[in-house]
Design a protein around this nucleic acid. Structure first.
Length: 671
RNA sequence: GGUGAUGUAGCUCAGCUGGUUAGAGCAAACGGCUCAUAUCCGUUAGGUCCGGGGUUCAAGUCCCUGCAUCACCA
């Protein structure tokens, strides 16, 4: 038996859990349950990440204290994870005494080891706010390409990185006032001190080739010093021995893994050091998104090493979630909160679907809604669940719930079943959850085929004993199937277990020698996904882009106003009301729609709005605004004789045509 | 801009260190069963393995190059 401590990255306490978070937590939970199934001792831990300027700012926006914000967030997060069957041994918070104590411990170890350095630098300071400004609180014109309204760390247009002070005409993003430069002294960890140690650790702790690639490149480029302090005011832990300095949130966030262990161990009368001391025999596994690989493969192992604590046995990274091939979007209704999903759709559906897509790589994963419905209905409900249902019901109805012995040697099923268990273990151990799911589906096919060909409903008329043997073998296979499925969809497995009189399915139930005492017909285990329910989730998730006060990207992402023009310039543009006569997709063009528009005469227009109007027919009859005197433009598909006014956010999300009241007639002038 | 990943059937993906005729599931068409949640079984059809070069007796697989998509940048 091994001991495994496994974590997901700590969700930031300033927003709701959404289906993107769940990719990670489902993956972690499936794996933790898998290890438990294999008989290992498992601690599955997580916590809210609660510090930093983001929390402070959001609390201020809402008029509550950071502590109140953080407490509410934790309640909501715990509720959402529980709804999805994420089975934490503890879900704690980084804003805890244990975390402060352990952060201090690690800091002292770094300091005593001579790895902390002081450096002073000039930083942007707002006199009216009385604080230094984080990079993204400063905006101004890019010093390289001249694009206005860029953040203080990187230009969104030319991607140049720079310091906030390099911006032309910098202003703070809160009040719009001009900040001053002021000298400040900060603490840095000399990460380069740990190069030797990291070179040793990385090959064992970072087994995924694609991730290893990243890390090796960073190591080759050289490790820069890491700034771990922030000036007051800051929501976080004050640095011992300093005045007005706080730990940067990324210093104490991963320490939350240990703090949560300590809190749990204290409650259970265990010692956290049994898990985290350098000599511990426990496996420590961190599941993270690929965006935070740097922290978990360089900073974190270095910190742990300095403090004489155990480094991760494995850092397991995953890609991001897209929905329908695109980033989650509030306006498209694909920014789906866990809470909203659970209101309309069974969480097991999502767990299963993610399992069919989670491999060992860091490729992004797409939630394709049509594929989702097909996959869940065919592979889970029709294949596996229906199999469990048909076999148990048959035995309950025809054999009074009794199974009998059957010959396992040379049985058409038994070898396949046994080898499936072995393959499953190997695939899961290597984080190929998708492979394991495929294996389960294949096994389901085999058992269904066996049952179909053995046809016990016919056989029972001539040879009831043989029919019972065949059903008993099928039940054995179905039990194995449900056991292998249990880490992925525990609720489904639990209902099956109930039908065969078992508390929790375990490895012992996968033996062909095991017999249930009595087989009952199960209650409806899980029903098929209703496509209408999927539509309802999307509908319920749609919101205006500016609707969400918690999201800080709203006003910040507006495009800059263009240079001034004269009235004469403006009056050169002839805008007319147009009525859409017809609209259709353009063969071979991904973004274009072809429209015929009546502006007093009919013109042909190509518009790059297909993504916003997947069904062009809805546009017919719409009253739109057309630039009527734009020079015709020859495109690959024909000539475009006008342009339609449209609006969208800076990143093209929320794209829509500008439409006017239908009482305006075709050809009217817009002025 | 730097770096990484991906591109195989309508969809989602397998194809290990190069080796018969490129596979599976779903979706489609047809046939069969009736124990089961209209489920299950069988058959058929579906591919310029992103494009262009190259190495090799042999390339989806290796090398170069181009294109497209996605991501990360402490």
């Amino acid at each position: 038996m091994s001991r495994v401590l496994i974590t997901s990255a700590l969700p930031y306490a300033n927003g709701p859990i959404h289906i993107g978070h769940l990719v990670e937590h489902v993956q972690t939970d499936v794996w933790a349950r898998f290890r438990r199934l294999m008989g290992d001792e498992v601690l599955h831990l997580c916590a809210d990440d609660t510090h930093g300027t983001g929390i402070e700012l959001n609390a201020r926006k809402e008029g509550i204290t950071p502590e109140e914000l953080v407490a509410r967030s934790q309640r909501e997060h715990e509720r959402d994870f529980a709804a999805f069957g994420i089975n934490f041994d503890s879900y704690y918070t980084t804003n805890s005494p244990e975390n402060q104590e352990l952060a201090n411990l690690i800091y002292h170890a770094l300091k005593d080891g001579g790895h902390i350095e002081r450096k002073s630098s000039m930083q942007m300071y707002s006199e009216s706010l009385g604080r230094f400004l984080p990079d993204r609180w400063v905006k101004g014109t890019c010093p390289k390409c001249g694009t206005p309204d860029q953040y203080g760390d990187q230009c969104g247009n030319c991607n140049t990185t720079y310091e906030p002070a390099d911006l032309i005409n910098p202003v703070d993003a809160i009040e719009g006032k001009t900040p001053v430069l002021r000298e400040t002294e900060q603490l840095y960890v000399r990460l380069a001190d740990f190069v030797g140690e990291l070179e040793r650790w990385v090959p064992e702790g970072v087994p995924q080739p694609a991730v290893r690639n990243f890390v090796d490149r960073w190591m080759e480029a050289g490790l820069a010093d890491w700034c771990i302090s922030r000036d007051a005011p800051y929501f976080g832990f004050e640095i011992p021995g300093e005045t007005g300095k706080y730990f940067y949130v990324w210093l104490d966030a991963p320490v939350g893994y240990i703090a949560t262990t300590k809190q749990l161990c204290d409650a259970r009368g265990m010692n956290w050091r049994d898990w985290w001391d350098a000599g511990s025999d426990a496996e420590i596994v961190h599941v993270i998104g690929k965006d935070i690989v740097y922290f978990h493969t360089l900073f974190w192992p270095a910190m742990l090493h300095a403090a004489g604590l155990k480094q991760p046995s494995r850092v397991q990274a995953h890609g991001f979630l897209t929905v329908a091939g695109e980033k989650m979007s509030k306006s498209r209704g694909t920014f789906i909160r866990a809470e909203v999903w659970a209101e309309h759709l069974d969480p097991s559906y999502l767990r299963f679907y993610y399992a069919t897509k989670l491999g060992n790589g860091i490729d992004d994963m797409d939630l394709n809604l049509e594929d989702f419905v097909n996959r869940v209905n065919s592979d889970l409900v029709n294949n596996a669940v229906n199999l469990a249902s048909r076999v148990t019901k048959f035995i309950a109805a025809r054999f009074d719930g009794q199974v009998c012995d059957f010959e396992t040697a040379n049985h058409p099923l038994c070898d396949d079943v046994a080898s499936a268990v072995d393959q499953y273990r190997a695939l899961m151990q290597d984080w190929d959850i998708r492979g394991a799911t495929r294996l389960i589906a294949e096994l389901g096919d085999k058992v269904n085929t066996y049952f179909q060909e053995a046809a016990p409903w016919a056989l029972i008329k001539t040879d009831p004993a043989a029919a019972q043997e065949c059903c008993s073998a099928a039940l054995h296979a179905a039990t194995v199937l449900m056991t292998l499925l249990s880490p992925i969809v525990p609720d489904v497995a639990a209902k099956y277990a109930d039908a065969i009189g078992v508390d929790v399915l375990g490895l012992e139930h996968t033996s062909p020698a095991w017999r249930p005492a009595l087989v009952a017909a199960p209650d409806s285990i899980i029903s098929r996904v209703q496509p209408a329910a999927v539509d309802a989730v999307i509908e319920a998730s749609k919101q205006a882009p500016t609707d969400d006060a918690v999201d800080d990207t709203s006003s910040a992402d507006l495009e800059a106003i263009k240079p001034e023009i004269s009235f004469d310039d403006f009056s050169k543009v002839d805008l007319r009301i147009g009525k859409v006569v017809s609209a259709s997709e353009v063969e071979g063009a991904r973004k274009l729609l072809q429209l015929t528009v009546d502006i007093g005469r009919e013109i042909n227009v190509f518009a790059g709005i297909r993504q916003a109007y997947p069904d062009p027919a809805v546009l017919v009859g719409a009253s739109v605004v057309v630039v009527a005197n734009l020079a015709p433009r020859k495109m690959r598909f024909g000539v475009s004789e006008g342009m339609l006014l449209a609006t969208s956010a800076a990143d093209d999300s929320g794209l829509q045509l500008v439409q006017v009241d239908p009482s305006a007639l075709a050809g009217w002038t817009v002025r």
